[in-house]
């Protein structure tokens, strides 16, 4: 279980004023829950994830993972990065085994684990390739396999599919859900896509900017396993209601929103 209480992070802005990156954020995430965090740029969603990962500090509040306060990165948490963050000089096999290598696991054992995960993410036969030889989707599969290889209880995903094209993103969303349903782990998934947030999450945490705080938490009562070609799930009433509601909320907090502004224009900005 993840318990975030009263999390506040300030930093000094360019003109000397204090900016609240996060303000009094309270959030409890159950074991094996899939939580998506949605919000416009500058709402602090990435800061929240980096705090959870132990990569950045904060000014007030607490983060507990299974009762243990988070101070630094820990073995029970693993992160998947938007830009994949693969070692360009290392093979797929060595990239997937990297987390285990850092933990000092012997070569044979870590490679065995890595091969198993390479199979899980559908990259059999690509073990010896370098990241530069792979497509973006395949690179993120490597990133996912690397995170899963250390057997985390919590998977932290920072807009992992944001850099991918639409088709690849859909395929990876589906595969991520399949893996999550099989492995049962807690996922905190940052996104700025409303559809993605609803398709994947048990709950959508909507954040608003300046100061970064939780605006609303929306449960997604769409049964699992979800299969989401937009002609199935995408056309259900629950899906439409949820995405419409989230869009209204997001639009109202968007700086470009003005009574005269055409909604299409605001939408195009993301």
């Amino acid at each position: 279980m993840i318990e975030i209480t009263n999390l506040t992070k300030r930093f000094t802005g360019n003109r000397g004023g204090t900016v609240h990156a996060l303000s009094e954020v309270d959030l409890t995430i159950a074991d094996n829950e899939f939580v998506t965090v949605l919000g416009p740029s500058g709402c602090g969603k990435t800061t929240l994830l980096r705090a959870l990962a132990g990569l950045t500090g904060w000014d007030e509040g607490d983060i507990l993972v299974d009762g243990e306060p988070v101070r630094s990165p820990g073995p029970e948490r693993a992160m998947v990065f938007q830009n994949f963050a693969l070692l360009p000089w290392a093979s797929v096999l060595d990239n997937v085994a990297f987390g285990l290598e850092l933990r000092g696991e012997a070569r044979g054992r870590r490679h065995a684990t890595a091969r198993e995960l390479i199979g899980l993410v559908g990259l059999d036969g690509f073990e010896d390739r370098l990241p530069g030889e792979l497509s973006g989707g395949m690179q993120q599969r490597v990133g996912l396999a690397r995170a899963l290889a250390v057997q985390p209880r919590v998977l932290l995903m920072d807009e992992p599919f944001g850099a991918l094209d639409e088709q690849t993103r859909r395929i990876l969303q589906q595969e991520l859900l399949t893996i999550w349903e099989r492995r049962r782990l807690t996922v905190v998934f940052i996104t700025h896509s409303i559809e993605e947030a609803v398709l994947l999450g048990d709950r959508v945490v909507l954040m608003s900017p300046r100061p970064g705080r939780i605006a609303e938490t929306v449960p997604v009562d769409i049964p699992r396993p979800r299969s989401f070609d937009l002609h199935g799930l995408g056309r259900t009433e629950e899906f439409t209601t949820l995405t419409t509601h989230l869009w209204e909320r997001l639009r109202s907090m968007h700086p470009d929103t003005h009574p005269d502004t055409h909604p299409d224009r605001a939408g195009a900005r993301r």
């Binding site: 990569l55 990165p73 820990g74 693993a78 963050a85 990297f98 987390g99 850092l102 933990r103 932290l156």
Partner: peptide, 8 residues
Amino acid sequence: EMSRTFGA
């Protein structure tokens, strides 16, 4: 950062 998340 990635290395640090794995405890490097």
